[in-house]
Design a binder for these strands. Structure first.
Lengths: 113, 113
DNA sequence: ACCATATACCTAGCCATGCTATGTATATGG
DNA sequence: CCATATACATAGCATGGCTAGGTATATGGT
């Protein structure tokens, strides 16, 4: 089961990150960890940071370092790009399709013509 | 996106297979391919057969070859074991938790305390 | 001065699994 | 006799979550 829980998060995590960043406009990694934990999605740093890097590399996220007026370590802020918003739209459609397929397997509906 | 669609199916497919086999009692691979396609989940054989083998190996599914009264290639039927039903329960709980987390990211609710 | 702690980011390497491509076997129809 | 449909199987690739470890800056305690 532990392994299954790991596998089933693939793709889903990227979708959740896009949603969370879209909602807040811009977020940095450590803050994301806390917000995801509050949503019942506790990630490890070794999961989050490589994921954010990939998404930035692929063009879904833009990044800005913030060092001014800061006590402590500098923060890297992430925001959605146009491409990121487009990806989010596509992923939303697909994920909801999957949820509907799941729900239909749980309790099938008759086909309306 | 194509890659994302591949990744997001991890784990989810196993859940769907368990649901579908539970519903029908017993099913063979080729039939599963058709039923999944009808559900909007078109798998390739190279995805399904290794998955079924793994699930049988792990003890979630039991298998019976059927060669009697058959025209054509023998069929390998799969049924849920007790362990498979238990896995299905756990996966259902987890997947629905994920769906709720997703929905909450789409439109957050205030905390009722 | 020193160390622990909190904040904040990063990386190498493991491993599970969906997919591509290919192969095998049995029956039917032209 | 070959094409097609049915039916199962496997080798090898690519991807990404996780483990375990590392780096850096500031604060508070002794």
């Amino acid at each position: 089961m532990d392994n299954w829980k790991t596998q089933v998060k693939r793709g889903y995590l990227e979708l959740c990150l896009l949603l969370l960043i879209q909602r807040h406009g811009r977020l940095y990694g450590f803050d994301l960890l806390e917000k995801l934990k509050a949503q019942g999605l506790p990630l490890k740093e070794g999961t989050l940071y490589p994921l954010l890097s990939r998404m930035a590399e692929e063009g879904s996220l833009s990044t800005v370092w913030e060092t001014e007026n800061l006590a402590g370590h500098p923060r890297k802020f992430y925001s959605l790009t146009k491409a990121g918003q487009a990806s989010l739209s596509e992923m939303t459609v697909e994920f909801e399709r999957m949820v509907r397929a799941y729900q239909d397997l749980q309790s099938p509906k008759k086909k309306g013509k």
